[in-house]
Simulated scan of single mutants.
Amino acid sequence: MPDDPQWEAPEGSWASSAARRRNMQAIRSRDTKPEKLIRRLVHAQGLRYRVAARPLPDLRRTADMVFRPAKVAVFIDGCYWHGCPEHYVPPKTNSGYWSGKVLRNMERDRDTDQRLRDAGWLVLRFWEHESAEVCSLAVCRAVADRRIQPGKVSR
């Protein structure tokens, strides 16, 4: 049991201790506070969207909010996991593993952005520390701009 002081990480586990393992398992990959706040503000403006959905069916990556008709994908990135230039602090323990993981996340983010742009999508990325009000206004504006294009009728 992880609560047992004699507990050891399973073979091949990256957790350095039972406490670290519990801590890492508690971190949400979706429905974080910043995401929920931005979603609530966007929803209050009358916009509807998909949550944690794949913008492209053949791309095994999900956006936090997807506006399919307007082709807008929104990502709210955590400062630690996505390497925020303002708030990222390299880990003190197991730094090689975690720094490499964050670097791979950043590379995957850039690849995702490029694939979506190539498919005609607008990608909006925000940091978790950014103002939810500012982010939601940017999302609403972008979706409205993409919906109102000459010669195109969209709902």
Rank of each mutant, 00 (worst) to 15 (best):
F126P: 03
I148K: 12
A119R: 11
W121A: 00
S99G: 12
W81M: 08
V143H: 00
L137G: 07
D111R: 13
S17W: 07
P34S: 13
L124R: 04
R48S: 05
Q149P: 02
R60E: 11
Q114K: 14
N94R: 10
R48H: 12
Y49K: 00
F126H: 02
R115H: 12
A144V: 07
V134E: 11
D111Q: 15
Y97L: 12
R61S: 07
R108F: 03
I38Q: 02
A15Q: 06
R28A: 15
R60T: 02
R115K: 14
V42A: 00
R117K: 14
D118Y: 06
L103F: 12
P69N: 08
K101M: 15
A119W: 01
E128L: 04
R61D: 05
L124W: 04
R155D: 11
R28C: 02
A132D: 00
R28H: 12
D64H: 01
S13K: 11
S131P: 05
L56N: 01
A119Q: 10
S29P: 00
M1K: 12
K152H: 06
A70P: 02
R39Y: 01
G96R: 14
D145E: 12
R115Q: 15
P90N: 02
L137R: 14
N23L: 13
S17F: 03
K101P: 06
H87N: 11
P85H: 13
L47G: 05
V102M: 13
G46K: 05
R108G: 01
R104I: 05
D109M: 06
G46D: 07
S17N: 09
V51P: 00
P90K: 14
V42M: 03
A144R: 14
W81P: 01
D58I: 03
V153S: 13
L103Y: 09
W98Q: 04
A9D: 07
P85D: 09
K92R: 15
C140R: 10
A73T: 09
A142S: 15
E8L: 11
S29L: 05
R115Y: 01
P85L: 11
E11F: 06
R54G: 00
P90V: 14
A18P: 06
P57G: 03
Y49C: 04
V134M: 11
S136V: 00
F126Q: 04
W98C: 08
R146A: 08
E133F: 03
E35T: 02
G100Q: 03
Q45K: 12
H129I: 10
P69G: 09
M106Y: 05
T62R: 15
E8M: 09
N23P: 00
D4T: 08
F67E: 01
K152T: 07
V139Q: 03
K152G: 04
A15I: 03
Q25N: 13
R146L: 03
E11G: 00
I27S: 05
L137A: 14
G100C: 08
T112C: 13
F67I: 03
R110D: 13
Y88D: 10
